Amino acid sequence: MGHHTFDASRAAKLEDAAARYQYVSREELLWALDPSGDETVADLGSGTGFYTDLVASHVKHVYVVDVQDSMHEFYREKGVPENTALVTADIADLPFDQNHLNAAVSTMTYHEFATDQALSELARVLAPGSRLVIADWSADGTGEDGPPLDERFDVDSVTTALRDAGFNIGFRALRPETFLVVGVADE
């Protein structure tokens, strides 16, 4: 299940605001993240930086984490906010110190990195009480948009995996094609 990366040659498709906000709106993402303005956040599987731009305008610093250099190249051409740093890394091997991050967000990318090792790594780098916001395609959807159904996860398996990795579940919602889960790192 899961674990493929988005085809970088189709990166421009990720800039379609109407399509992106249909599944995760600006307001919903900011509500789930609940930034105060002082946070250091990682955007996991950031792609073209579509949601990074929104997050960056509400926090102190954002690490733009993607495994594909070509996605960072697209973002550089588009224009990267000053308070961001591009990081090429696998989520299972992040170059951050323990408790370094105040939050992390994954918008439609959880299915690309969902492993016990990646979740353990996120638990390591997120400070106690930090939020991990995951919005992704649901295995309960139709599969008309997003990745094939066999590459998706259902909200119950995601919440179980987060609990097993040391996160408390602060919120979860299942929608027609997607889910939203907010995990809170154990204190």
Rank of each mutant, 00 (worst) to 15 (best):
Leu54Phe: 08
Lys60Thr: 13
Asp34Glu: 04
Glu151Ile: 04
Pro147Trp: 01
Phe6Met: 05
Asp116Phe: 02
Phe96Asn: 02
Gly79Arg: 00
Gly143Gln: 06
Phe96Gly: 06
Pro176Glu: 00
Ala135Leu: 11
Asn168Cys: 15
Trp137Thr: 00
Gly47Ala: 08
Val64Pro: 08
Lys60Ile: 07
Val125Lys: 02
Gly141Ala: 09
Thr107Pro: 09
Arg152Leu: 12
Pro176Lys: 00
Ser57Val: 13
Ser70His: 06
Arg76Val: 14
Gly2Glu: 04
Glu27Trp: 06
Ala42Met: 05
Thr40Asn: 06
Ser130Val: 08
Ala18Gly: 13
Ala56Lys: 01
Val41Tyr: 00
Ala17Leu: 01
Leu149Ala: 06
Ile134Lys: 01
Asp34Gln: 11
Asp156Met: 11
Met1Arg: 10
Ser70Trp: 02
Leu132Trp: 04
Leu122Glu: 00
Ala17Gln: 07
Met108Val: 05
Met108Cys: 10
Thr109Gln: 09
Val65Ser: 09
Arg124Lys: 02
His4Leu: 10
Met71Cys: 13
Gly79Val: 05
Ala185Leu: 10
Arg152His: 03
His61Val: 01
Gly166Asn: 00
Val184Cys: 02
Gly146Ser: 10
Thr178Trp: 07
Gln68Leu: 11
Val184Ala: 06
Asp43Val: 06
Thr48Trp: 00
Pro128Asp: 00
His61Gly: 11
Ser25Gln: 04
Phe153Trp: 12
Ser70Asn: 15
Ala8Arg: 01
Pro176Asp: 09
Asp116His: 08
Pro35Tyr: 01
Val87Leu: 02
Gly183Gln: 05
Met1Glu: 07
Gln98Met: 13
Ala103Cys: 13
Glu112His: 03
Asp34Tyr: 10
Asp34Asn: 09
Val41Met: 07
Asp154Ile: 12
Thr48Val: 03
Gly170Thr: 14
Ala19His: 13
Val87Ser: 01
Ala32Pro: 10
Glu27Lys: 08
Asp16Leu: 08
Val67Met: 13
Ser57Cys: 10
Asp90Asn: 14
Leu54Gly: 14
Arg20Ala: 14
Ser25Ile: 00
Gly129Thr: 06
Asp90Ala: 15
Arg124Asp: 14
Ser130Phe: 01
Asn102Glu: 14
Leu86Phe: 03
Leu119Arg: 04
Gly170Trp: 05
Ala103Phe: 03
Glu77Met: 11
Lys78Arg: 11
His3Pro: 05
Ala104Gly: 10
Asp97His: 07
Leu119Asp: 12
Thr115Tyr: 01
Arg26Asn: 14
Phe113Arg: 00
Leu44Val: 10
Asp38Glu: 08
Asp69His: 13
Ser46Pro: 07
Val80Leu: 07
Thr88Cys: 12
Thr160Cys: 09
Lys78Leu: 12
Ala185Trp: 01
Phe171Trp: 02
Asp34Leu: 13
Ser9Asn: 07
Val105Asp: 03
Thr52Lys: 05
Thr178His: 08
Ala123His: 03
Glu77His: 11
Val24Ala: 13
Arg26Trp: 05
Arg172Val: 15
Tyr23Phe: 15
Ala118Thr: 12
Asp16His: 14
Thr40Arg: 02
Asp150Val: 09
Val158Pro: 12
Asp164Tyr: 04
Phe153Tyr: 10
Ala127Cys: 08
Ala92Val: 09
Asp69Ala: 15
Thr160Lys: 01
Tyr110Val: 09
Thr84Leu: 04
Val62Gly: 11
